[in-house]
Computed example of a mutant assay.
Amino acid sequence: MENETSLVSVGDFLDVYYKVKQKGFLQLASLFNLTKNKRVSAKWNQYQSSSDFWIIPALQQYWNNLISGNPEVSYESYVIQKYLHNKTNLSLLSIGCGEGRHERKFAVSGLFSKVIGVDISNERIERATQTALENNLNIEYVAGDFHQMIVEKESFDVILFDSSLHHFNDINGFLKKEIFPLLKTEGILVANEFCGPNRLQWKKEQLDFANELLKELPKKYKTRIDGKSVKRKVYRPGLIRMLLVDPSEAPDSAHLKKALQANFKVLEEKNMGWNILHILLKGIAHNFLNNDEETNQLLAYLIKKEEEFIERVGDADSIFGVYKKSRLE
């Protein structure tokens, strides 16, 4: 049986090569700081979502439809309409908020008197703060390690994790000891999260399936962001590179779903896919931004193939869920 983890892979060298071409050696070298938090902060300070699959509008609409039943209704609007529409003076905490896109969508509803976003990246918090000011939104943004922050217990009606919970170690213990106490009675936790293999150690069947689909793609859809080189194979990332560049990436992601279910009452939970498209489209997603017939047909085909794969393996690498802090707790 083939080992399902890799210490080093060919993909590591290719990834470094293309990042040096895109960002330059000195900028890339700055990621390799001595401390874990500095490496994580440096990675996200420099992060640009230029060709990750979640930038594709057609996929965003597909995920919206899975959650809300309407491709034009985002999960933020869906949560507001379904769970918060008759409430006021609410408080929200967004952990790992990045540049603040998601909590801004909650803030504009007018239902919240307090919205706080926390992120380890100083630069992303600065951009989030500036955008909130430009849009006249009263959102407090805080840069730093959430573990080191003092937060009043039972002070939030909503806690949000969007692609951030999977960056924490021992997710079960983190939810139980640090997150559950912060929610008010009857408060909800909203999670839109990666829950696939730890450290992105894709299984062989995922890699094989993704590589078969990659072979089917026309060349123009496989061109990397430099406009010259072509993505020819999907690789499992090596653990050494993962730990060097971003030691916070998916250390306990495989246990994320069970940890949420163990600590909260599940109000709803939906599989969002990501098993194939996440790895297949990495580095080439910019080729799928056009809203033309060929691109839309190709994306529809890829979505269908991922759905078939998920049906076969019986699990998804991403979930959307709403969870409640029950009075019984």
Rank of each mutant, 00 (worst) to 15 (best):
T129I: 04
C97V: 09
N198D: 15
G98A: 12
D157R: 03
I120P: 05
F161A: 03
N138T: 10
S121V: 04
D145T: 06
G173Y: 10
E99N: 11
E103Y: 00
S94N: 15
L160I: 09
F174M: 11
L137N: 08
N138I: 05
K177P: 06
A191V: 13
V118Q: 06
F146E: 07
R101D: 15
F194S: 09
N138F: 08
H147F: 11
N89W: 05
K184G: 00
K87Y: 09
A191W: 02
N89Y: 04
E99M: 11
N138L: 11
D157Y: 07
L183V: 11
D157Q: 08
L175K: 10
V118E: 07
S163T: 08
Q201T: 05
I171Q: 09
D119K: 06
N136D: 12
L90H: 02
P181W: 15
N172E: 13
F112C: 04
T129S: 15
D157T: 06
R199G: 00
Q148V: 01
F156V: 01
V108K: 15
E186S: 11
F156K: 03
R104Q: 15
L111T: 00
P197H: 06
F106K: 04
N89E: 14
D119A: 07
L189Y: 02
C97L: 08
S163G: 03
L133H: 12
S94A: 13
K105A: 14
V142P: 00
S121M: 01
L183K: 09
I159R: 06
N169W: 02
V151R: 05
G187F: 05
E154Q: 15
